Amino acid sequence: MPERQIRLFGDPVLKTPSAPIEEVDERVRGLVADLLDSVAVPGRAGVAASQIGVNLRAFSYNVDGQVGYLLNPRIVELRGEPVPVDEGCLSVPELWYPVKRAPYARAEGMDLDGRTVVVEGTGVLAQALQHEVDHLDGLLYLDRLEKDQRREAMRRIRESRWF
């Protein structure tokens, strides 16, 4: 399967909560292949299904050589005081802002065989897990910015070449 085009800010699918995966069929298997191909591009830590235009709860991740995916993921544990970390998003190119994220995250979901999968980590992996589950809940990292930063980000988006 080929890498899929990333949907950009303004596309309604990015603000729509994703539907749970009820059955693992060929469509879901193809989605996972597309997500893994799409996250394999250098510089990508995660890709949510909504970012490639599919309104299902699934994402892929690629952090420090750890590559995988989760179906129907949910954050089951956050640990530590949230701290600001620079964050960007493939759906909001060229912008980076500090977002408060917990330094440790544990997510649970399932694989294509219906088995429970746990992914946990600190640093960039914790950030990616939180970021991708936000996508599946219809949130962008911009939604977590302080009011003044969000206003600045929206101005920069309107002035960007890609918007």
Rank of each mutant, 00 (worst) to 15 (best):
S60C: 09
L71S: 10
S50V: 13
Y61N: 04
V76Q: 10
I52W: 03
R74L: 08
L78I: 13
G68D: 02
A58I: 06
V67L: 12
L78P: 07
V92E: 00
L56T: 11
G80A: 14
R79S: 14
W96I: 15
D64I: 08
L56Q: 11
G68N: 07
V92T: 01
Y69P: 07
S50P: 06
S50L: 01
F59S: 05
L71C: 10
P93F: 11
S60T: 09
L71E: 03
L56F: 06
P84W: 07
Y69M: 12
L78W: 08
L71R: 03
L95S: 08
R57L: 04
D86W: 12
R79A: 15
P84Y: 07
G46W: 13
D86L: 15
C89Q: 03
G88N: 01
D64N: 15
A45H: 08
A49S: 13
Q51S: 07
V85F: 04
G53M: 04
F59W: 08
L78S: 12
D86N: 14
E87L: 03
V47A: 05
Y61F: 15
P82V: 10
P93R: 05
Y97S: 10
Y61V: 14
L70F: 05
G65E: 07
L90N: 06
V67I: 15
I75K: 11
L95F: 02
P73M: 09
V85D: 01
L95D: 05
A58N: 04
V47I: 15
G88I: 00
S91V: 01
N72K: 13
V92H: 00
S60W: 09
L90G: 04
A48P: 05
G68H: 02
G53L: 03
N55Q: 15
N55W: 00
V54I: 14
S50E: 02
V67G: 12
A48V: 06
D64T: 09
L78Q: 15
N55D: 14
G65P: 07
I52T: 09
V83E: 15
S91D: 02
I75L: 14
S60F: 12
P93Y: 06
N55V: 09
R57H: 04
Q51E: 10
A49M: 04
P84Q: 08
Q66H: 14
A58M: 03
N55I: 04
V54M: 06
E87S: 12
P84K: 07
E87D: 11
A48H: 09
V76P: 10
V85R: 04
E94I: 02
S50D: 02
N72L: 05
F59R: 00
G68I: 05
R79G: 15
L71I: 13
N62E: 08
A58D: 02
N62H: 14
S91I: 03
A45M: 12
I75R: 13
E77Q: 14
R79W: 08
S50R: 00
A58W: 00
C89G: 07
R57Y: 01
G46L: 13
V85S: 11
N72Q: 13
G80C: 12
P82R: 08
V76H: 11
V76Y: 09
A49P: 06
V67P: 07
N72P: 07
E87F: 01
V63E: 01
V92P: 00
L56A: 14
E87K: 00
G88D: 01
L71Q: 06
N62M: 09
